[in-house]
Design a protein around this nucleic acid. Structure first.
Lengths: 121, 121
DNA sequence: GTAAGTACTATACTAGAGTATAGTGCTATA
DNA sequence: TATAGCACTATACTCTAGTATAGTACTTAC
């Protein structure tokens, strides 16, 4: 590989190679306005589409649908369809999805502290 | 406070009150395309504007300037102006900024693992 | 006096994330 | 037969993050 190419892709520096891409991967999974609210809602139990819609203020059906699809593609959320009258669909965090708990915990802790710090000025 | 108001602002559920806002606060600090690259560059040492510009591929001056201002406002980065010929400006992570290391570590670890998992399907 | 180096700022544009609003397909009850 | 409830999808719009490109202010060396 040419050095130019490496520079282009930001992998010429060891630290970039080892940290930057992974962090951006993780942030992409959590990206957008609604993923965190959805994840937090689902961490506390199985929910149906309409439950989530009620529980998350202001989210539109379109966004809820799209974000759930994203989370499902990343294997964080499982979608189960029941063949009942008005079809019901349940969303659950997968076992793998639970692995986000640690990350979210770290973010929550830092965020709490940061808000205190910034507010007091 | 009215229950309606609480529902509107998503703080009627205990879990929202305790986790959602802090996590979003933290993510906002790291938000955007360029903050992580800048932070990672600065974690490895003091850098000048032009250093960062060279080290972070494709970032425009405008974005670099804006993101550095954001990071400075959040007290993560310190800006020092030296009264030299062509004025030089140095950017450093503050002591407080170093506190992000843990969060970034957690994100990097999860991101690495996630990439493996998603790729192998 | 003009060219060059540093650290920006200004203006205009583009693309993608998010919003608003309405409509679909299914069926069981009234 | 019509209405209601669920889980979406379609279309069109808006708004903001990011890009592209150019220009500024300062000063020193040639």
């Amino acid at each position: 590989m040419k050095d130019d190419w490496k520079r282009e892709h930001g992998i010429n520096k060891p630290q970039c190679q080892s940290k930057m891409l992974p962090v951006q991967d993780a942030l992409e999974v959590l990206s957008g306005k609604w993923k965190i609210p959805i994840i937090i809602a689902l961490i506390h139990g199985v929910k149906r589409f309409s439950d989530l819609s009620k529980e998350i203020p202001k989210i539109t059906d379109r966004m809820l649908s799209k974000e759930l699809r994203d989370l499902e593609m990343n294997q964080l959320v499982k979608r189960t369809v029941y063949d009942t009258f008005p079809v019901t669909v349940e969303y659950t965090m997968t076992e793998y999805g639970q692995s986000l708990k640690g990350v979210i915990e770290a973010l929550a802790e830092w965020g709490t502290n940061h808000r205190k710090r910034i507010m007091q000025d």
